[in-house]
Write a protein that binds this DNA or RNA. Sequence first.
DNA 1: CTCGTTGTTGCATGTTGTTGCACGTTTCAA
DNA 2: TTGAAACGTGCAACAACATGCAACAACGAG
Lengths: 266, 266
Amino acid sequence: MVKVTPADNNALPEERQQRILSRLRSDGRVVAAELALAFEVSEDSIRRDLRELAAQGLCKRVYGGALLPAVTLTPLKQRRTEHSARKEALARKAVSLVQAGQTLLIDAGTTNAAIAAALPREAGLTVITNAPHIAQLLLDREGFEVLLIGGRIDTAIGGTVGAQAVEQVRRVRADLCFPGACAIDAAHGLWGFDSEEALFKRAMIEASDETVVVATDDKLGAVAAHQVSELSRVQHLVVEHSADRAARTAFTSRGVAVHRAEATAG
Amino acid sequence: MVKVTPADNNALPEERQQRILSRLRSDGRVVAAELALAFEVSEDSIRRDLRELAAQGLCKRVYGGALLPAVTLTPLKQRRTEHSARKEALARKAVSLVQAGQTLLIDAGTTNAAIAAALPREAGLTVITNAPHIAQLLLDREGFEVLLIGGRIDTAIGGTVGAQAVEQVRRVRADLCFPGACAIDAAHGLWGFDSEEALFKRAMIEASDETVVVATDDKLGAVAAHQVSELSRVQHLVVEHSADRAARTAFTSRGVAVHRAEATAG
DNA sequence: CTCGTTGTTGCATGTTGTTGCACGTTTCAA
DNA sequence: TTGAAACGTGCAACAACATGCAACAACGAG
């Protein structure tokens, strides 16, 4: 059985590659011959597409078609070591929104790990997180009440997502939540790369009184595949010092309090 | 009964190998003739697949099909770790009880962290743990399926205990469990220092087919405040090389398989 | 409008990977 | 010991592949 989207037959080359990727992500595999039939191009062109996608690490070519790339696409450990000054500046500004005695819901992610590391000790904070790395970090520093969200860990995310995690988040209540931002756009709100991830972030936001989105420049105005929530559920946005002025006012005019991090030394 | 995924019949060659591996991991064994039928290829092709998988150490070929490979101990790499040589020796012996494809329930604790660090990669192991430190350790090494037990983290224990954690453990099933031992006594069984901790360990044992207690010398024959379980629920006991002979036979005579770690170099 | 450039496409070429079969060998159980 | 089933190997047929090339459309500069 071969799915044929109405417009598959006359797609632009780049558009065709996107559609191939989309099929790959939903089915886990694509067959060159089937794609050639669906897009009405020769298998040679399909092979060229797959070659390019593979060069970008977006698929793994195999005899007859392509599969999803091996899960080891995750240099998570490596990413974590990037203690960039920019993320620390963002984290310092984000932490200024936290008040003593509050309960925080902190998502997985390197930016959020920086925030957790910047939290004040001895402020009687309770932190709920789905990331073992963040939990560990806070345990080492002592002085925090830490609650762990259980479930299956997604290695690409570095934390738990999925039904079990969502169910647990629904049973807690937080003052502030820090959903990791994959993309945020003034018109369409907050976005995630992965479906499960987006559902989890949404649950986080619904379990919190206020939401703080901390976004590096590359995430501003971007849009990803799965919507997490409307912008109206976001009360605070923390951006880098270098963030575009127009982008900042776009959020401010929609009722989001925009906080600008200090300029970094470097 | 032979499971047949809808698309098994026309899988790409490499995809077919992945599916074979997947079957192997879930069933523990595969039969060449069945695979040939399911994938609609000749047994020759299946044999070629199994040969390749075996060459990568991902399966063990036997007459008629293939089995999961025997667990190969991780080469003793002299990495700088906080674990003492004694704990590493204990961990190596404990890991030898693990078979490829199994699901393990691992409690918090430094000894258990050493065990987690000694687990073989690429053996298709699923690890369920209540300790963020252990989860983090396995995520960094990659190649493991990790499930996190959520709940409030007890800072003294370094992992989650309490009602929520117990509830989650009740919903999983493991082949082997490693409850951290506070004290173990031939007459009275396994003991914990803390009430909540003991309840959690009991839940772990009840969720597992077999229980392995790994005990340093100081814990042998000791008794603590809260009983975790009778000795009858413990199938394996791993002790140090230096463990008292009388203490060892006391456990052996009660039906517990006692495994003695190698003598440490230092 | 014309021309050159660029990018895409399909085709022809030779190469590589995969498959099933034949044949001789090994394994296992009766 | 014997026979059937499973196995390894070599081989030929075939499908998928990479590469080079020419045709063609889209596009911008002159």
